[in-house]
């Protein structure tokens, strides 16, 4: 055993982690090696000094406890709501989604003061001021949606006619294959928005 090995074993011994046979080998080496004997004595002394240094600190003050207790957040009443949110993430997400949808639909309803005409095929449609006219003899294929305006139908519409914040006038010559709807209020506008999300269910209550 050389001295380097011996030092490594010394540390293991101080860690209480040395097999008996190794300990005997180390002892044998140290008996023959004064330098290692001195090294081990110093290491033992160092340990003793450190352990003796252990209990020389003053305890902390009571003010520290008060300080800690004053900085920790007080249990809030709100926390019940947060816990609920944490426990029901799906419902929370759905509620937020509905809220966003409703506000956007409402803002769309409020913002629309201009005439707006929507349809798949608007070739034959005539627009005068806030009037949307389907002239006699013309055929509009597909749905016709009008915001903030008057619809005058003399010709043919192969689909639904929906008027939001406006009126529909149907001449005797008019022919509308789909349904005619007039929407004036915010709630029915929202209902229309929601039901238009689900095709095939586009009728107002």
């Amino acid at each position: 055993m050389d001295c380097k090995q011996a030092v490594s074993l010394m540390h293991n011994l101080l860690d209480d982690d040395l097999e008996r046979s190794c300990a005997l080998d180390l002892k044998e080496h140290m008996l023959a090696c004064p330098a290692c004997r001195e090294r081990f004595r110093q290491l033992e002394e160092t340990e003793q000094l450190l352990y003796g240094f252990n209990h020389r600190l003053q305890p902390t003050t009571d003010e520290l406890t008060e300080r800690i207790m004053s900085v920790i957040p007080k249990p809030k009443k709100q926390s019940a709501m947060f816990k609920w949110v944490r426990r029901h993430p799906a419902i929370t997400v759905a509620a937020v989604f509905v809220l966003v949808m409703m506000t956007s639909a409402l803002s769309m309803w409020n913002a629309d003061k201009q005439l707006l005409v929507k349809g798949q095929q608007l070739d034959g449609v005539v627009i005068q001021d806030n009037k949307v006219i389907v002239p006699n003899g013309k055929v509009v294929k597909g749905d016709l949606t009008i915001h903030n305006g008057l619809a005058e139908v003399y010709g043919e519409v192969e689909g639904n006619v929906t008027v939001v914040d406006g009126k529909v006038y149907q001449a005797s010559t008019a022919h509308i294959t789909g349904s005619v709807q007039q929407i004036d209020e915010a709630m029915s506008w929202i209902w229309y928005q929601i039901s238009s999300l689900f095709p095939g269910n586009a009728t107002a209550p």
Binding site: S8, H11, D15, Q42, E47, L49
Partner: peptide, 20 residues
């Protein structure tokens, strides 16, 4: 941890050599 204890112990031994 073991390696660090061994090195730390040697470090302190050298620092405290005058006293031990």
């Amino acid at each position: 941890i073991k390696t660090r204890v061994h090195r730390g112990r040697e470090f302190l031994r050298k620092k405290l050599e005058r006293k031990i």
